[in-house]
Simulated scan of single mutants.
Amino acid sequence: MAEITIEVVRRERVGKSDSRRLRRADLIPAVLYGAGREPVSIQVPRRVLTDSFKEGGHENRIFLLKLGGTDQTRHAMIRELQLDPIDHRIVHVDFQRILMDQKVRVKVHLELEGVPHGVKTDGGILDFVTREIEVECMPSAIPHEVKVEVSSLRVGDHLEMGAVQLPDGVTYLGSPEVVVASVKHARMEVVETPAAEGAPVAAAATAPAEPEVIQRGKKEEAKES
């Protein structure tokens, strides 16, 4: 994944009012932290940042931040994006410094490839259980996704992470027994057939019993009078 170069400016003032001022000027307040150094408040051009997302999103993308007016540069990754709850525009960005000669831990999406034999031939159902994993690798080796072949799965089979082939230089950090996908039997739904109209109902035959008792009681009262 190619790195994106963005020129940033150090923020001398911080706070809600200054952040609102930056957003009105189409700038995004941000912070750069990590690698054992003090956090630095910066501002990023909104258009430059959002345009970079069109080239494959921001997840696990490496940015080269150039501090305006200096020759200082820092490699970084986005660790958090804060969005406005109404218009979903970016309101703040957290960048984390990374060193290109040190491994990083990132989360990577899994992508299934192929149609399982049990689905295509036996009418089974594919259950995609684990869609994201945590891996460790050098920044230059971060995969965009990990492809998982599932064509050979039959009904009743499942695939665990221990059997997934990862790209060179990428180490999976979870349990090898984590299930990625499985093929299950299709469930048969039992539909109850409603009773036909006009069918006799047992309770209906006994319904008049109480009124008859009442009527007999009235006749007896009449005789006594």
Score class of each variant (00 low, 15 high):
A222H: 13
G162Q: 10
I133M: 07
K223G: 03
E160H: 14
D127P: 00
V179K: 05
E192W: 00
T121H: 07
G36Y: 03
V213S: 00
V164A: 03
K120N: 04
P139N: 04
D18V: 07
P176D: 14
G198Q: 02
E59Y: 02
E210C: 02
L83W: 08
A181C: 09
I6T: 12
L65F: 03
L112V: 06
L22V: 12
V135D: 06
V44I: 15
V40L: 13
A209E: 02
V155G: 07
I142F: 04
V150S: 00
E134P: 07
I133K: 13
R216C: 02
F53E: 14
L159F: 11
H75D: 11
T206F: 09
L49C: 11
K184Y: 10
V190Y: 13
T5Q: 03
L159N: 13
R131Y: 04
I6P: 14
R187T: 14
I142G: 07
H117M: 05
L166I: 07
L22H: 13
A30P: 01
T206I: 12
E160S: 10
V14T: 15
E220T: 10
E212S: 06
K218H: 07
I86A: 11
R216W: 10
A35P: 10
I78T: 00
D18Q: 06
E149T: 10
E136T: 15
A2E: 13
Q96D: 05
K16F: 03
V91R: 14
L65S: 06
L67S: 05
D87L: 01
P116L: 01
V178M: 08
N60A: 04
D51Q: 08
H158P: 00
P194I: 06
G69I: 03
R187F: 10
G124D: 01
E136L: 09
L67W: 05
H75L: 04
S152Q: 13
R105E: 11
A186W: 06
V191S: 01
V148H: 00
L173D: 09
H58N: 10
I28K: 14
Y172A: 04
K16A: 04
L153E: 12
E145N: 12
V146R: 07
T70E: 03
V8C: 03
D84F: 05
R216T: 07
E136F: 08
V93F: 00
A222Y: 11
D26K: 15
I142A: 04
Q82W: 02
I133W: 12
G217M: 00
L81Q: 13
P200R: 08
H58F: 14
D127F: 00
A2L: 05
G174T: 12
R46E: 10
E160Y: 03
V155P: 06
G124C: 02
V129T: 15
E80R: 15
E111I: 10
P208A: 09
L112Q: 08
R20S: 01
I4H: 01
E136K: 13
